[in-house]
Design a protein around this nucleic acid. Structure first.
Length: 525
RNA sequence: GGGCCCGUAGCUCAGCUAGGUAGAGCAAUCGGCUCUUAACCGAUGGGCCGAGGGUUCGAAUCCCUCCGGGCCCGCCA
C-alpha cells in the first residue's frame, strides 16, 4: 500500500464517516428528525436539523440514496401550562398540540404557532426535508398496524420498558392512550377494552367511549411511538440529543422495541451534545433562555450558523456566544471561505473546509463570494441609514461596484440585518456608538480647543470625502500638541461622547457637512 | 445510583481509532501603512498537553486510577 492511499483515510469529516457507514448498511436511507413544538424552540433544535442535513448531504455526495423527514410531533399533548401561556390554557393541558388553539390567534393551531419560525429557518439553512405532522399521520391511519402490534404485544413491550429503563410501570400500562372525545385530553383516559380497531376507554371527565386506532383518536406513549415511527417510515438514521442517549434512555428502549416488537433494525444513532449559550445568560428551562433559536438565527447568518454546528463533532458541546464571539465566528467562517477557494490548504484544515462546504445551503458557489469584513459592517450599520446607506458607503469606499453579483447583495443584506439585530439586542456597549445630536458635556483643554480650531479651518477647504477628511484630521492632529491619538479622542468625545469610535474619515463623510463643521466650531470656541 | 462529553498557549479549539518529544485563530506585545480602532500587513512572546501510575526505545496520543468542569437519565420530546 502506498503512502498516498493511506493519506486518503487520514482525515474525514464526521458527516462523511456516518454517510459511509450508512451506505455500507443499506441501499436506501431515510434520515429522520423532529421536535415537539410545545414552546419556543432553542438553538439545540437547530443543531439537530443541521446535523441531520449534513449527513444527508454527505450521503448524496457519496452517491447513496437518501431522503430526510422532519416529524413535527403535533399530536403530543401539552404537558402543563407553561409560564409563557395565558391562564386559560390551563384547560388545554393534556390535549394534543395540534388541537389546541394558537396562542396568538394567527396560526392554524398551537403546534403551528411554535414550529412556524423554525420551518422558516429551515429554508434559510438549506435543510432539505419533508415536513410531516404526526397528528396527520395518525389521522391517516399510518400508525394503525404498529399500534395494533404494540397492543397485541403489550406485556412484552412493558417488560422491555421496565427491563431497560429500570423503572416500574403502572399496572394498567397500555401502549396506547385514547383521546377522550368529550374533553379532548389524552392524559385522563383508562383503557377498558381492545377489539381491533377499537380501544374502549373511560375518561376521568366521566365520558366513556371507543377510540379508533386508524384515526387520531389517541396516541402511543412516546418511547413506543419512537420505535413505531422507525418501522412505519423505514428510518435508518436519526440524530438525537444526548438526553436520549443515556443508558436506559429512550434510544436503548427503542432498540429493543424495534428488534423484538417491530422486527426491524434500529436506525444508526447520531447522538449530539447540547448547545450552551454564553454571554447573556445560560439556557435554563426554568428561567427561560434569553437567546432562542430564532434569536440565534437573527444574529447569525445561516451559513455561519451551519458552520458553527458542523465544524465540531456532534458529541462535543458548543458554547454559543451571542456577544463578541459571534464576530469571531463570522471572521473564522470568512477565513475558511477564503481557504476553500484559494486552494492549497493543508491537510489539517481538510475537515474545516468540508464543514464550510456542508454549510452552504445549496452547495458552494463556483467563485468565492464577496467578503466585506463583518466588523466593518458593525460600524457601517451604525453610521448609515438603512441597507441602501450601507451600500452607498461601500460603493464610495470602492469595496463593491456595479458588477456586484445579486447573490452577494443578498448575503450582504442578510449580514446587515444580523448586525442590526445583534446591535439592538446583544452587542456589548463597547462596540456601539451614536452621534450626539447636540454637544455632549465635556471639558476641553486649551490644547484640544486649539486643535479643533485649526481643524475647522482645514476641513472647510477640503473635499467632503472619507480619505481626504481623514488626512485632514490626521495631519492637523499631528501638528498640534494633542497629537494624533489625542486629536481623534477629542473628536469622539464631542461627537459620540466616547473616547473611541468608528473610523473618523468615513464617519464624517456620511454626516452632514454643516453639522460636522458646526460642532467642531462650537467645541473650539 | 447509572450514562455521556470535556480538561492542550489568556480565550475558542486542532492534533488523540495509524504513539515519535506540540499547532491554528482570536487576544497580548512590538513594528509598518502620512492613518485613531473594534480595520489591514508583518513579527514576537506564551503551554512541563488536569494529576499520578502502567505499556513502550519513545505517549498529549494506548490502559488503569484519581481530581476538576459541563450535561443527561422523572414516559418529558
Amino acid at each position: 500500500m502506498t503512502c498516498s492511499c493511506l493519506r486518503l483515510a487520514v482525515s474525514m469529516h464526521w458527516a462523511d464517516v456516518i454517510a459511509r457507514d450508512l451506505i455500507s448498511r443499506t441501499g436506501s436511507n431515510l434520515i429522520s428528525t423532529g421536535i415537539t413544538p410545545s414552546g419556543t424552540l432553542h438553538v439545540g433544535t437547530l443543531r439537530e436539523a443541521i446535523t441531520a442535513e449534513a449527513v444527508r448531504k454527505a450521503v448524496v455526495k457519496a452517491e447513496g440514496s437518501v431522503r430526510m423527514i422532519y416529524l413535527v410531533d403535533s399530536i403530543d399533548p401539552l404537558r402543563k401550562r407553561y409560564p409563557f401561556l395565558p391562564e386559560n390554557f390551563e384547560a388545554e393541558v393534556g390535549k394534543p398540540l395540534a388541537y389546541i388553539p394558537c396562542p396568538c390567534g394567527e396560526h392554524k393551531n398551537y403546534a403551528h404557532h411554535y414550529i412556524q419560525p423554525f420551518l422558516d429557518s429551515i429554508q434559510e439553512l438549506g435543510i432539505h426535508c419533508d415536513v410531516l405532522w404526526t397528528h396527520e399521520q395518525y389521522e391517516q391511519g399510518r400508525f394503525a398496524d404498529v399500534i395494533d402490534t404494540a397492543i397485541v404485544n403489550k406485556e412484552r413491550v412493558a417488560d422491555i420498558l421496565k427491563e431497560v429503563s429500570g423503572r416500574d410501570l403502572p399496572k394498567d400500562f397500555f401502549p396506547y392512550s385514547p383521546r377522550c372525545e368529550e374533553c379532548g385530553r389524552l392524559s385522563h383516559t383508562k383503557v377498558t377494552a381492545y377489539e381491533k380497531p377499537y380501544v374502549g376507554y373511560q375518561c376521568a371527565c366521566g365520558h366513556s367511549g371507543k377510540a379508533d386506532i386508524r384515526k387520531a383518536d389517541g396516541k402511543m406513549p412516546w418511547r413506543v411511538e419512537w420505535a413505531a415511527k422507525w418501522k412505519v417510515f423505514g428510518v435508518t438514521c436519526e440524530p438525537f440529543g444526548k438526553d436520549h442517549a443515556a443508558a436506559g434512555g429512550s434510544y436503548d428502549t427503542g432498540v429493543r422495541l424495534a428488534k423484538e416488537i417491530f422486527g426491524i433494525e434500529p436506525p444508526r444513532p447520531v447522538p449530539y451534545e447540547f448547545v450552551q449559550l454564553k454571554g447573556k445568560g445560560q439556557m435554563h428551562k426554568s428561567t427561560g433562555s434569553s437567546v432562542t433559536g430564532v434569536d440565534a438565527l437573527r444574529i447569525t447568518p445561516p451559513q455561519v450558523m451551519n458552520y458553527i454546528i458542523l465544524r465540531v463533532n456532534p458529541e462535543r458541546h458548543i458554547d454559543y456566544d451571542s456577544g463578541m464571539g459571534i464576530l469571531e465566528m463570522v471572521d473564522e467562517y470568512d477565513r475558511t471561505e477564503k481557504m476553500f477557494y484559494a486552494g492549497g490548504a493543508e491537510e489539517r484544515d481538510a475537515d474545516l473546509l468540508r464543514a464550510y462546504e456542508l454549510s452552504q445551503p445549496e452547495g458552494p458557489r463556483s467563485k468565492q463570494p464577496l467578503q466585506i469584513p463583518y466588523r466593518h459592517l458593525v460600524s457601517l450599520v451604525q453610521i448609515a441609514d438603512g441597507f441602501d446607506g450601507v451600500m452607498t458607503i461601500l460603493r464610495r469606499m470602492e469595496m463593491l461596484d456595479d458588477s456586484v453579483a445579486s447573490e452577494d447583495v443578498a448575503i450582504l443584506k442578510q449580514r446587515t440585518d444580523c448586525v442590526k439585530y445583534w446591535l439592538d439586542a446583544f452587542a456589548p456597549d463597547q462596540v456601539k456608538f451614536e452621534v450626539c445630536s447636540s454637544m455632549p458635556e465635556c471639558q476641553l483643554s486649551e490644547q484640544e480647543r486649539e486643535f479643533l480650531g485649526k481643524l475647522y479651518e482645514s476641513m472647510r477647504g477640503v473635499e467632503w470625502e472619507g480619505e481626504t477628511l481623514h488626512d485632514a484630521i490626521y495631519g492637523c492632529a499631528k501638528e498640534c500638541a494633542v497629537g494624533p491619538r489625542g486629536g481623534f479622542q477629542t473628536l469622539y468625545r464631542i461627537f459620540c461622547d466616547q473616547k473611541q469610535g468608528p473610523r473618523l474619515g468615513f464617519f464624517f463623510s456620511t454626516l452632514d457637512r454643516d453639522f460636522v463643521l458646526g460642532r467642531i466650531k462650537e467645541a473650539s470656541d
